[in-house]
Computed example of a mutant assay.
Amino acid sequence: MTKSDLFKVALLGVPFDDNSSFERGPALAPNVIRNVLSNGSLNGSTELGVDLRASERWLDVGDINVATSENFIVAIEQRCDQLLSNNTRLVTLGGDHSISYPVLKSYRKHFDQLTILHIDAHSDLYDSFKGNRYSNACPFARVMEDGLCERLVQVGIRTLNLHQEQQIAKFSVESLEMRHWPLSQPLVFEHPVYLSLDIDGIDPAFAPGVSHREPGGLTTREVINMIHQINMPLVGADVVEFNPNKDIDNMTSQLAAKLVKEIAGKMLLGAI
């Protein structure tokens, strides 16, 4: 058995939303999602047949304490470095979408080739937003500037403006807009995949608990199928921008917990 066969997958919380550009609240999400995962309403089995509760390779490593917004990049990157160096891959719970940048800075040290699958209503490619280059509207501009992936594929996009279109062209991003949905052919990847899943990529009919509700999005089933159909090892993921303050009857917390389960199960089935 090789070292890669022994990797673990850890749930890591980042209760941080200082870079939210509209409404605060996503910092509450990690605790809420954990509560759903453990409260008995869901069992431990995933649709792909992985029983997370019976797996010794699935663990919860708690939260990262981000003391100030000034040190959020260093704090997140260093904790991810510790875990990845210990052969532990991560399902990270945001928090706002700014956390993806430091997580991916760490991932790049451990994976020479990486594709990012980004599910979102927004491209998050602003060079700067409201004077903040680390806003939740900017993480993938920083990711692409730093060369943290070979390929960035964005699915669910439905709010592009001229600046974002220019950024897409500048960084050669594959932006698959919802106005062209469904895809003409399945996504095919050549490298290990990191999934960045903004809950507002899903239509607010299924996920009302977000700060930026944008109608016309993906269904829950479409997102789950997309996760299941990833043809290369899924080596990491973040689930971000769930805002419990905006939820209705716990709909979005249940959805986020379901997605965490399916992502973790898919990761545990992979090997590289």
Score class of each variant (00 low, 15 high):
Lys8Leu: 08
Leu11Cys: 06
Arg24Asp: 00
Gly25Leu: 06
Ala29Lys: 02
Ile33Lys: 13
Ile33His: 11
Asn35Lys: 15
Leu37His: 10
Gly40Asn: 04
Ser41Val: 15
Ser41Thr: 15
Gly44Val: 12
Ser45Val: 15
Leu48Gln: 13
Leu52Lys: 13
Ala54Phe: 03
Leu59Glu: 07
Gly62Asn: 08
Asn71Trp: 00
Asn71Gly: 10
Phe72Gly: 02
Ala75Pro: 00
Gln82Tyr: 12
Asn87Ala: 12
Arg89Glu: 04
Arg89His: 13
Leu93Gly: 06
His97Cys: 12
Ser98Leu: 06
Tyr101Met: 02
Tyr101Pro: 11
Pro102Val: 02
Pro102Ser: 04
Val103Tyr: 05
Val103Lys: 05
Leu104Phe: 07
Lys105Ser: 13
Ser106Gly: 13
Tyr107Pro: 08
Lys109Met: 06
Thr115Arg: 01
Ile116Val: 15
Leu117Cys: 04
His118Asn: 10
Asp120Cys: 04
His122Lys: 06
His122Leu: 01
Leu125Ile: 05
Leu125Arg: 04
Asp127Tyr: 10
Ser128Gln: 14
Phe129Ile: 03
Gly131Ile: 10
Asn132Tyr: 07
Asn132Ser: 12
Arg133Glu: 11
Arg133Met: 09
Ser135Thr: 02
Asn136Pro: 15
Val143Arg: 07
Glu145Pro: 06
Gly147Phe: 04
Glu150Asn: 15
Arg151Phe: 00
Gln154Val: 02
Val155Glu: 08
Leu160Asp: 01
Asn161His: 14
Gln167Asp: 11
Ile168Arg: 02
Ile168Phe: 04
Val173Asn: 04
Ser175Glu: 00
Glu177Val: 12
Met178Thr: 06
His180Lys: 10
His180Met: 06
Trp181Phe: 14
Leu187Ser: 03
Leu187His: 03
Glu190Ser: 15
Pro192Gln: 05
Tyr194Thr: 04
Asp198Gln: 07
Ile199Gln: 10
Gly201Ala: 03
Ile202Lys: 05
Ile202Pro: 03
Val210Glu: 07
Pro215Ile: 09
Pro215Ser: 08
Leu218Cys: 11
Arg221Asn: 15
Asn225Ile: 08
Ile227Met: 09
Ile230Arg: 02
Met232Tyr: 11
Pro233Tyr: 04
Pro233His: 07
Gly236Pro: 09
Val239Gly: 06
Glu241Lys: 12
Asp249Tyr: 13
Asn250Leu: 14
Ser253Glu: 08
Ser253Asn: 09
Ser253Lys: 11
Gln254Ala: 14
Leu255Thr: 09
Lys258Arg: 15
Leu259Ser: 00
Ala264Thr: 07
Gly265Ile: 01
Lys266Val: 13
Lys266Ser: 14
